[in-house]
Design a protein around this nucleic acid. Structure first.
Lengths: 203, 203
DNA sequence: GACAATATACATACATGAATGTATATTAAT
DNA sequence: ATTAATATACATTCATGTATGTATATTGTC
């Protein structure tokens, strides 16, 4: 039953996709490799050929996610057209809307914001994953630094503090939505939620 | 080896405490009853005597937590002394500081905000627990309703919308802190974070 | 107030099932 | 022919739940 390389890639992707959906739904430790195999239409043998164990699947998923966001931010930061806080506000709204519209992104968010928990076999990924997070946090801060530099924010403003504040708010909204989609009509309210929040900066 | 009733109560409490710590640390499904038993200095026999299974322990923990908060809020709402938004702001700060200072409260927050996941045996608790949450959300909204009634907020303000906004922000801060305590010096910044946020309402 | 009778509060032992990892078999590309 | 890409079979571990054992509080009875 040996497949061609493209077929192998397909089963690799199928395993990742199935894992993402199941991990997001049930948390990593409640998903067995047998379940993943079934959902991906393969056997556990195939999984063990492509991945060392469940932890490695999890890690592969993580890597596939954290690149794209950083790229958007870096693009934004090079733009000289719009005010930085306006760009940040837009980015936040975009992130929220993305989650409502893109199943796969929603799954990833659910997995990495809600259902992760680094214990047992996957404990060793905690530090590298946290490091990646920290990196993207630093990028967020740049919006505020730019805003401060161009006088939009007062001298006393602390970019890192404001970054944390925005980040918490955004995270809180996303988590609330993921936990209980009906409680926020995010598609409708995303913009309002963000704009209202940015009022504290007089944007 | 039969113990007196008070002794039995002690082991009951010990099981709950041990469970809280372990659940908060490792997520429910990664904790075995054997582990809980060891941490509580009993055997699994004792656990099965007091609880039907792990899910019932989880549920007992939930019940022990959600009463106290509602009581604080209800007290606040009866107070006529201070402005409602000021009271709400104070409550938020208090909640944040509590978490930094009280280990047991921190554990509970970690469990119910971060490490819950209602799958498998504990799936059946999802709805009742969500209902309790909804209940407390309604209480939060009352602060804004009062503020609107006394003219602090403009006519167009939507209390439920603002409630959700505050709730998300608060949740986001707590989750960020629980995930990574060093990233926020919450003890120092709690008040500032909240006050800054409430500026959007001109408080 | 003494003394069974019984229910209580556990501990221990066992039976079962599920998940993991590995070893081996299979098949088809290259 | 060889090896890459799977499937299958098996061995082991671990957690759960239950059944059973046991000692001691507690309760009713005289």
């Amino acid at each position: 039953m040996r497949r061609t390389k493209q077929d192998a890639q397909k089963t690799y992707d199928a395993i990742l996709n199935a894992s993402a959906a199941l991990f997001a739904e049930k948390c990593i430790s409640n998903v067995s490799l047998e379940e993943i195999a079934k959902a991906a239409n393969v056997t556990r043998g195939a999984i063990y050929w492509h991945f060392k164990n469940k932890g490695e699947i999890f890690n592969a998923l993580h890597e596939s996610v954290f690149q794209p966001l950083s790229e958007i931010i870096l693009q934004d930061l090079h733009s000289e057209e719009e005010a930085p806080l306006q760009l940040l506000s837009n980015l936040c709204v975009k992130l929220l809307l993305d989650i409502t519209q893109d199943t796969s992104k929603r799954q990833m968010m659910t997995l990495f914001l809600l259902h992760w928990n680094y214990t047992g076999d996957i404990a060793k990924y905690k530090e590298p994953h946290l490091a990646k997070k920290e990196e993207s946090l630093q990028l967020f801060a740049k919006y505020f630094e730019k805003a401060k530099a161009d006088g939009t924010l007062p001298e006393c403003a602390d970019p890192m503090f404001l970054t944390i504040s925005v980040r918490c708010y955004l995270k809180g909204i996303i988590i609330e939505y993921l936990n209980n989609p009906e409680s926020i009509d995010l598609e409708k309210n995303a913009e309002h939620l963000i704009v209202q929040f940015f009022r504290q900066f007089n944007v």
